[in-house]
């Protein structure tokens, strides 16, 4: 007989309801209760339930990257995951990267390079870039990496490939790459 834990349910179907299901999800350092309707995507949970509208819905199908957030250090499309499956996870959204009083280096660089136009893809681009820089630091290869067994090197082509999950219809790509390149260099200088 199945002995599973019910995370959330819309209708009882013979599975024992566990009392301690009141799990939480950590968003930008604050614990929040999981949504009642298991259908709620992490994206809708952020935007609708929590009012964290910095994370954008561009396609709702993992095809544009506007909804990119960082979960336990990994960037994902928040539209293609159920909030209820993230019990105990730590989520960082654009609001957690930097607010108007204290923008991060990436946010500054995006402004300085005019790496945005309409701004709708921008939070996703920034969240994605934040995680991407860590991935390169970890030595993870990409489709643009010539030698899979050597250290990942930082290049414009690497940035472009690794950022290709974030569409920008205004066409700010050239400036986005310039902004990320600047931050990568700045961070590298800072650690010397």
């Amino acid at each position: 007989m199945f002995k599973g834990t019910i995370i959330a349910k819309e209708a009882a179907k013979g599975f024992e309801e566990i009392q301690d299901m009141a799990g939480t999800i950590g968003i930008n350092g604050t614990a929040h209760s999981l949504p009642a309707d298991p259908r709620t995507s992490l994206l809708d949970f952020l935007r609708h339930d929590l009012g964290l509208t910095g994370t954008k819905k561009g396609c709702d199908h993992g095809q544009c990257g506007a909804c990119t957030v960082i979960v336990n250090g990994m960037r994902i499309n928040s539209c293609l995951t159920l909030a209820a499956m993230h019990e105990g996870d730590r989520v960082t959204t654009i609001e957690g990267i930097g607010g108007p009083d204290a923008p991060s280096d990436l946010q500054h660089a995006f402004m300085a390079h005019d790496a945005l136009q309409c701004g709708y893809c921008t939070p996703g681009q920034i969240c994605s870039a934040q995680a991407m820089l860590a991935e390169i630091a970890e030595g993870w290869p990409s489709d643009a990496t010539a030698d899979l067994t050597s250290e990942a090197t930082f290049s414009d082509e690497e940035i472009r490939e690794r950022m290709s999950g974030n569409l920008c219809r205004c066409g700010a790509y050239a400036n986005i790459v310039a902004a990320i390149r600047d931050v990568a260099r700045g961070r590298a200088d800072a650690t010397v």
Binding site: F2, K3, G4, T5, I6, I7, A8, K9, E10, A11, A12, K13, F15, D37, P38, R39, L82, A84, M85
Partner: peptide, 16 residues
């Protein structure tokens, strides 16, 4: 609408 359950083991998942 669906219910979301957590499978405790692969064989339980298989059974589901």
């Amino acid at each position: 609408p669906f219910e979301l359950v957590r499978a405790p083991s692969p064989s339980d998942a298989a059974q589901l």
